[in-house]
Design a protein around this nucleic acid. Sequence first.
DNA 1: AAGATAGGTGTACGCCGTACACCTGTCAAG
DNA 2: CTTGACAGGTGTACGGCGTACACCTATCTT
Lengths: 238, 238
Amino acid sequence: MAEQAETLRRTPLSRDRVLRAAVTLADEAGIESLSMRNLAQDLGVVPMALYKHVANKDELLDGMIDVIVGEIDPPVPDADWKRVIRERILSAREVLLRHPWAAIAIESRNEATPALLGYLNSMVGTLREGGFSTDLAHHVMHAMGSRMLGFSQELFDASRRAGRSGIAEPDPPAAFPAEAAAQFPHLAAIATAAAHDDTSVVGQGCDDQFEFEFALDLLLDGIERLRQQGWTSSRPPR
Amino acid sequence: MAEQAETLRRTPLSRDRVLRAAVTLADEAGIESLSMRNLAQDLGVVPMALYKHVANKDELLDGMIDVIVGEIDPPVPDADWKRVIRERILSAREVLLRHPWAAIAIESRNEATPALLGYLNSMVGTLREGGFSTDLAHHVMHAMGSRMLGFSQELFDASRRAGRSGIAEPDPPAAFPAEAAAQFPHLAAIATAAAHDDTSVVGQGCDDQFEFEFALDLLLDGIERLRQQGWTSSRPPR
DNA sequence: AAGATAGGTGTACGCCGTACACCTGTCAAG
DNA sequence: CTTGACAGGTGTACGGCGTACACCTATCTT
């Protein structure tokens, strides 16, 4: 069995194996635990070995992003633009929920990876096929922003938190401790109004999925209205 | 003059002076250059001296965020909700453009600072005074997400980039090198369609302010429509 | 005069990313 | 069958990071 472990450890590294291990590590221990040293240890290898497969940590992150972009569902066939876009964004959101570190990783990157560009490109393609002018499609992409990738866009998204992703972290009594409620009455009102089952907790009591779709549909409906009325930018020549 | 420098250096530290210096350093050298050691050096002091004024680096970041939240204009008086919200968000956006590191800093924090809660609270207050139910106000806050803080929300926002903020970084020929245009034709079409003056560059050729306001008004108009028709959540009891 | 206290200092530790020299097993060419 | 190139894992080392902890030294109170 020592033999077996040895064999397992000796499974040759590869860029793919490195990236997968990195994604798993980030999923389970949080992005801030993803160091070259920790990752190497998980792979039973010395840190510098990784550099034979990824140029540096930034490239590792890019690779990880590409891995999870690959998890987004392809466009559903034979549907109108709105449904295609909506479904795809919701799929992207599921991916982001599975990999809470990804939102931060993507945002902190300053160049898009090819896989990401490919995804965005196909989204624009969907719009164009749906009858959007390039002009309107362009503004739509801006308007959707990172929501195109299923970003929840919360100001403070508990799910992004550090270690051990969502597992075994009920975190129940945290959010609105009465003194804060006095200081921020409107926020308190909103938080409690939203709680359907149990009261008292802000990030807990409200249905994130509902909120996401609310915003998404608000945007999509507005966009559909613009499309129907043949909106064109007509902005001042400046 | 050595005397003078000495005196200057000896100006006693204070939490406020530390925070200001940190903001300046991040503005000028980029957030990744903001280390306790660099900051201490700018202040003519040994790194550990800072810890007499801020508990740790996270608290330093929180303090910096509070500083710039304080730069957002107060609500304009005697205006309808839409104008108040719109103006305030645009003011927040100006602040974020002045401090490109702030978006990342805010997003990577996982608890809101008091100043930030105060700002959000007053935004909700504006909505309530404008006739929104707490229910609708709640969803609106979610829908606006970090746009409430003037986030540009671009997927890849060049202005957030690393060092020396926007100064002396024309970065003109960067973005669409023809080979990419072939691979991502829709993105290429969008990028070139948007360029009014000069063609060819994506993040350069398009008018960020226009895009921001486009998305903002899309949301605000949709929200106004919901308000007028007395929208109520009526989501399934689940 | 004494002693508390606030605030700046110096040293040290454990983490990080990664440059660089090195070793080793595999495989192709001679 | 030898040889040598080369891919890929190893070991050491460096400079940077955040910060714990012990220390020193003005200043202010009593």
